[in-house]
Design a protein around this nucleic acid. Structure first.
Length: 903
RNA sequence: GGGCGCGUAGCUCAGUGGGAGAGCACUACGUUGACAUCGUAGGGGUCACAAGUUCAAUCCUUGUCGCGCCCACCA
């Protein structure tokens, strides 16, 4: 016996365990079944399940379970990312909290060992949370970006790209994070607008020189008034960087400054003569039109300085404190950068060289993980020639080898890929893949997969060198190893069966915010090392926002915890909610009410199953659904078959919301609302053969439902599957009910839709006429013999569902009747003295008016020559049919009006 | 500056070149041995605005207004 409600708290852990133990999640490498492969977007080892993960993994699991049931060899490859910065941060914080020494005093080896310990103890909590969600990953194949195999793949890729000239070392300006003291890539920088200042300074000309500077202009823009200046005016948002200025630049066409181009000005505070140069970079319209050039700390200035051979003055150490160096005045040496800023402004002001301090919104770069202001710094780093690797990756999407879903995201991909910059991959961290490069004391570089190989290379170059090599202390950007994920997890560089079978993967499911970080880079690496795209489809899903459309964040306090929802409503409810909301191309606003609603949906199904159980609807192996005789059974089998086709079609197109919607409608609005109601009189009736078929048909349909719903609601469906057993297989490995044309029964469907429409019409009128809900009303049908046939076939259900005490065929309605027109039938409800004639008259008038109006609209169309001539014939015919239907209805309504008038 | 997207019922959102939809909320009524986590019925929308294309526009095009996101070096 089924419990009163579904006990998900018991069922979830029990079933998950059983599935995993049974090996249902495991993919076989054997030939035969067509592969279906998804690599999980590896969560950070530090991560815990948030709503975005819940959505992402629900969708992957829906697809995995769907394809598994369809008989494909499903590999949902799980794994974790070592998350360089995030993990190092967590462990350092823990060290500090425990009062331990910091990582530098611990030393590198001890620290890394500590991180591994942390990983074993606390890492990967998210995997147990994914299990609670029901994720059917093949856990036997779990990978980690720093496990031996993946580390080997990383080294191999690095070495090969280096040998191909696609990885190189370069000294250039890089985004520097002073908190973590490492370089970061462009993508890890968030540009934010903040309230800042725009300081205007005077840089005096050398040797007290002066020039005439125009201050008023006529209508043609010609100067009419001048003042004598002994300085050039510059403006800056970062005054402390002036100590590193190597020049002042003006635009070559800027006549105001033409007299002083080529002369020197004196850099205040530093007392250094720097040239005034002409360059295309400054915008004469902006600020004073003159730009101070700080080549070592600004990306634009760096370009200008290089073009003109201007000296670069580095100002900051790795923590962004001012350097202790001779070209910086004593006072500012070792000062913190913002302290130095204040000091510089104050000192310039004291010298009388501060013209103005303007309040201004400025865009500043912040580290996405550290949250501190990023400094452009001149350092040696390793780079990937992304431009070269991007070429085939762009072509692959252009040719459709990989398709974005929704397709629109390919634009985002193209835009970034076509303007891609070199990718800085070295990080000055300890936790990560150490770069396989060794340096000789003379600066020579040897890149190899192992130290031995590097030594061999070195001794070929100089036999003395081998013993003196020093390994590059830096590690690689975490995304470098993530970029290999679709093939490294499958065994590459070994030639494994798994790799042969499951690469390229079928689909990547991810959110748009990592198209650049991850998708693009997997495309580049996959194509370069496998000569094939890493995935055929990229399904980009929405971001999950709170119910007001705000991003969830701890600081806003609007975070909805998926585990909390699972506790409260069950994993199935959460999963179905996320799938139902996952419409393409829009963000998801999640509200708890929605989850509650889909929990109710589960309960509804549960109760429907209880009803079936009570009525002894057992699965009958002898039952052949294509041979059902009763219209009601033929109809529900027909509808189930349509639902099956709909769900498969929508899932194949990644329209999760439509698939969920089709199931919801079929289960609730068709199966529960009508089929079970229609079955009730049968179960209560005396005809055993009819009962037998209906029991079998109900059980069969419930089975279809359970199968079709399983990818979305695995726990409740598996529970019901067991309850209606015994079964040969668990539902998770049961085969998907493919649509079957032998199950189509359009005539039965038309019949039942007629019954449903009629019952609905009667109910509607009863309500409108204030007929007490419990009252049994006698009714007579006015119509011909065909109607009689139809009627007698369905009399029992019509009587029951419409609450009619008796049904007869008549030529005219009895006195005191309400007349209902439904298709070819007019039904008279004998309400006798209950009826309010005026109300009935008004009701019929309204119906007539409605039909007349519709006919009018259609007539207008049909009388339009252009419409009849130019619209497709099918459309015209459709309108004609509609008109005929309304016309028939109208005639019946008018007949009803007449009859009413005679009473 | 470039790009993408969104304005449809009170709310959250589907959707379509030819008959405006769902869930929730709301109103009325609760009758039937699955279900009150429910049932039945109902109200509610010039599909942001304007012009154009079309026989036909909520849907296509353009523009306007409002909103969101991504990319970008204006000191």
């Amino acid at each position: 016996m089924l419990d009163k409600t579904f006990n998900y708290k018991d069922a979830e852990p029990r079933l998950y365990d059983a599935w995993e133990k049974s090996g249902a999640f495991k993919a076989s490498d054997e030939a035969g079944a067509a592969p279906f492969t998804i690599v999980i977007p590896p969560p950070n080892v530090t991560g815990s399940l948030h709503m975005g993960h819940a959505l992402n993994n629900t969708l992957q699991d829906v697809l995995s379970r769907f394809e598994r049931m369809r008989g494909r060899s499903v590999l949902w490859q799980p794994g974790m990312d070592h998350a360089g910065i995030a993990t190092q941060m967590v462990v350092e914080r823990q060290l500090a909290a425990d009062g331990n020494q910091d990582r530098r005093s611990m030393g590198r080896d001890a620290f890394i060992e500590r991180v591994w310990e942390w990983k074993e103890e606390s890492g990967g909590a998210i995997f147990n949370q994914l299990r609670r969600l029901g994720a059917s990953c093949d856990w036997s194949r779990e990978r980690f970006t720093m496990d031996d195999g993946l580390s080997k793949a990383v080294r191999k890729v690095f070495v090969q790209l280096y040998n191909e000239g696609l990885i190189y070392r370069d000294k250039r300006l890089v985004n520097w994070d002073p908190k973590f003291e490492t370089a970061i890539s462009d993508l890890e920088v968030e540009n934010k607008e903040i309230d800042g200042h725009f300081w205007h300074f005077k840089y005096p000309l050398e040797n007290g020189e002066t020039y005439q500077f125009p201050i008023a202009f006529d209508d043609d823009g010609e100067p009419t008034e001048w003042e004598t200046r002994d300085y050039i005016s510059i403006a800056t948002t970062r005054p402390e960087t002036m100590l590193g200025d190597g020049a002042v630049a003006v635009h070559p066409s800027d006549k105001r400054y033409a007299p002083i181009v080529g002369k020197n000005c004196i850099l205040p505070l530093a007392d250094r003569a720097i040239p005034i140069i002409a360059d295309e970079y400054p915008d004469p319209e902006f600020g004073s039109g003159a730009v101070k050039i700080t080549g070592a700390h600004d990306f634009n200035d760096y370009q200008v300085a290089r073009r003109h051979g201007i000296a670069l003055y580095e100002l900051l150490d790795t923590k962004a404190n001012m350097l202790d160096t001779d070209y910086i005045p004593q006072k500012y040496r070792s000062m913190e950068r913002f302290e130095a800023r204040n000091a510089v402004v104050a000192d310039i002001d004291a010298l009388g060289l501060l013209i103005e301090t303007e309040d201004k919104k400025i865009v500043q770069p912040f580290g996405d993980r550290s949250g501190v202001v990023i400094e452009p710094m001149l350092t040696d780093q390793w780079y990937v020639n992304a431009e070269e690797l991007a070429k085939p990756a762009i072509a692959a999407v252009e040719q459709g080898d990989t398709q974005f879903v929704p397709e629109n995201w390919s634009k985002t991909y193209f835009q970034w890929m076509r303007n891609i910059e070199p990718w800085c991959i070295s990080r000055q961290l300890w936790w990560g893949h150490q770069i396989p490069a060794w340096y000789g004391p003379d600066g020579s570089v040897f890149v190899a997969e192992t130290e031995e190989d590097a030594k061999k290379l070195a001794s070929e170059y100089d036999p003395e060198l081998a013993g003196l090599l020093q390994r590059d202390p830096d590690v690689l950007d975490t995304w470098f190893s993530s970029a290999l994920w679709p093939f490294s997890t499958l065994g590459w560089p070994e030639k494994t069966d798994t790799l042969a079978k499951h690469y390229p993967t079928s689909v990547l499911v991810t959110a748009f915010d990592i198209i650049f970080f991850w998708v693009a880079r997997m495309m580049m690496m996959g194509l370069h090392f496998r000569d094939e795209v890493p995935f055929k489809d990229v399904y980009i899903h929405a971001l999950v926002l709170d119910e007001h459309g705000q991003k969830m964040s701890k600081s806003k306090g609007n975070v909805i915890d998926p585990l909390g929802l699972i506790d409260k409503y069950g994993a199935d409810a959460l999963r179905f909610t996320l799938a139902a909301l996952a419409a393409q191309g829009r963000n998801i606003r999640l509200s708890e009410a929605r989850v509650e609603g889909y929990r109710n949906f589960g309960t509804k199904l549960w109760n429907a199953a209880r009803f079936c159980e009570m009525n002894e609807c057992r699965n009958d192996p002898q039952f052949d659904p294509s041979a059902a005789a009763l219209p009601v059974n033929k109809w529900i089998i027909h509808e189930a078959n349509i639902c099956s086709a709909d769900v498969a079609r929508e899932l194949e197109a990644y329209r999760f919301n439509d698939a969920a919607g089709a199931l919801y409608k079929f289960i609730w609005n068709v199966f529960c609302d009508w089929y079970l109601e229609l079955a009730k009189p049968i179960f209560q009736g005396m005809d055993e053969s009819v009962k037998v078929e209906t029991r079998a048909a109900a059980a069969w349909t419930l089975d279809q439902i359970i199968k079709l719903l399983h990818p979305f609601m695995p726990f409740i469906t598996e529970t019901l599957w067991e309850a209606f057993g015994p079964r040969a297989n668990a539902l998770i490995v049961e085969s998907w009910p493919s649509a079957d044309e032998r199950l189509e029964a359009p005539e039965a469907a038309a019949d039942m839709n007629w019954v449903i429409g009629l019952v609905s019409a009667v109910r509607s009128v009863r309500q409108e006429m204030n007929v007490p809900a419990g009252a049994q009303i006698p009714a007579s049908f006015i119509g011909d013999g065909a109607l009689g046939d139809r009627l007698s076939k369905h009399e029992a259900v019509i009587k029951r569902l419409a609450r009619l005490s008796a049904v007869s065929i008549a030529d005219a309605p009895p006195k005191g009747s309400v007349q209902i027109v439904h298709e070819e039938a007019t039904l008279a409800l004998a309400l006798a003295d209950v009826i309010d004639l005026d109300a009935e008259r008004a009701r019929l008038d309204k119906e007539v008016e409605k039909a007349t109006k519709e006919i009018g609209i259609i007539d207008k169309k049909l009388s339009n020559k252009n419409f009849v001539e130019r619209a497709p014939a099918a459309v015209v015919d459709e309108q004609k049919t509609r008109r005929a239907d309304y016309e028939a209805q109208l005639e019946k309504l008018q007949a009803a009006q007449q009859r009413l008038a005679q009473l």
